[in-house]
Design a protein around this nucleic acid. Structure first.
Lengths: 141, 141
DNA sequence: CTACGGCTTTGAGCGCGCTCGAAGTCAAGG
DNA sequence: CCTTGACTTCGAGCGCGCTCAAAGCCGTAG
C-alpha cells in the first residue's frame, strides 16, 4: 500500500504520516524499487491505537516513549503496561472532571431556560393588564 | 483586589489575567489612582466559569463569543443558552469517545497482564524440568 | 533618600502538533 | 515523447494559548 492510500484508509494526511515516521511514531516504512513507501496493512492497527492515545490527550512525547518500547520488542511489555496504566488513570480523572463540568453547564443552561420562561410569563401578563415591567434576575457570570 | 492577589486566588498567572483582558475574555478592570487594576471579587465567578469552558475544550475564539454576548447584557440570554447547549453536546460526545478509548485501553492492558502471567508460569515450569523456551505471543500494536 | 516589590504597557518568543511549499524523481497512459 | 499525478526530502510556517522580557512608574519600609 502506498502512502496516498494509507492516508485515505487511516484518516491521516500523507504529510502527517511522513511526519509521524520522521519523529519516530511510525516505524520506517519499507520502500519499493523507486524509494516510495510501501506499507503493510497491519500498520493500520498501530495507527488506530495512536489515534486513541491522541484522542485521550496523550502528548506525542509520551507516545514516542511507548513507540520506542514497542520497537524494542516483547521484553518491554511490563514497562508499556505501566505507561498505559498511568495514562488510563489520567484519562479517568479527565473524564470525571468533564462530567463535573457538564453538571455546571446543565445548571447554567437551566438558568437561562428559567429566565426565558419568566419572560414568556411576563409577556402573557402584559397582554392581560398591560405595562408591568419586571426586572430580570441577576447576571451571575 | 490587585492583580497579584487575583492571580493567587484564581490560579491564573497575572500575565494570563492581563492577556485575557487584552483579548476580551475579561472585562476591562477598574484602575486605582495610579493606573493599577483593582478587581471586584465577583470576577472570580466568571474566571471559574471560563476555566470550566476551557477544561471542556472550548477554544478561546468561542469563549470570546460568549463573553461578548455577556457584555451586551440580559437580552442575549437565548443566544448564550444556544451556545452553551451546542457546547454541551460537543462535550458529551467527547466524553463518550473517551470512554470508548478507556475500554480499548483496558483490554490492551489486560493483554499485557496476560503476557506477564504466561511468562511467570513459564518461569515456574523451567524451574521444574529446565530449558523449555516458549515463544511469546503476537505483538499486535 | 533609597531600595524594594508589585504594578504598568508593548511586543516578541515558545511549545505543541501539524501543514505546506519547493524542487525533484518516477511510472503509467495517450 | 510528453504529460500527469503520486510520490520523495527538507525546511519553513501556522494557529493556539499562553509566557516572558524590557523599560518604566508607584508606594511603602528602613
Amino acid at each position: 500500500m502506498k502512502i496516498g492510500q494509507l492516508a485515505r484508509r487511516s484518516g491521516l494526511s500523507a504529510h502527517t504520516l511522513r511526519y509521524y515516521e520522521r519523529i519516530g511514531l511510525l516505524p520506517r516504512a519499507d520502500r519499493d524499487g523507486s524509494g516510495q513507501r510501501d506499507y503493510d496493512a497491519s500498520i493500520l492497527i498501530w495507527i488506530e491505537f495512536l489515534r486513541r492515545l491522541k484522542t485521550t490527550g496523550m502528548p506525542i512525547r509520551e507516545m514516542l516513549r511507548y513507540a520506542a518500547l514497542r520497537e524494542r520488542g516483547p521484553a518491554t511489555g511490563a514497562e508499556r503496561r505501566a505507561l498505559l496504566e498511568a495514562h488510563r488513570e489520567t484519562v479517568r480523572a479527565h473524564v470525571a472532571e468533564l462530567q463535573a463540568c457538564l453538571l455546571v453547564l446543565d445548571s447554567k443552561i437551566g438558568g437561562y431556560a428559567d429566565a426565558e420562561q419568566r419572560i414568556e410569563e411576563n409577556d402573557a401578563t402584559e397582554r392581560h393588564h398591560d405595562g408591568k415591567q419586571a426586572g430580570p434576575r441577576a447576571e451571575g457570570a
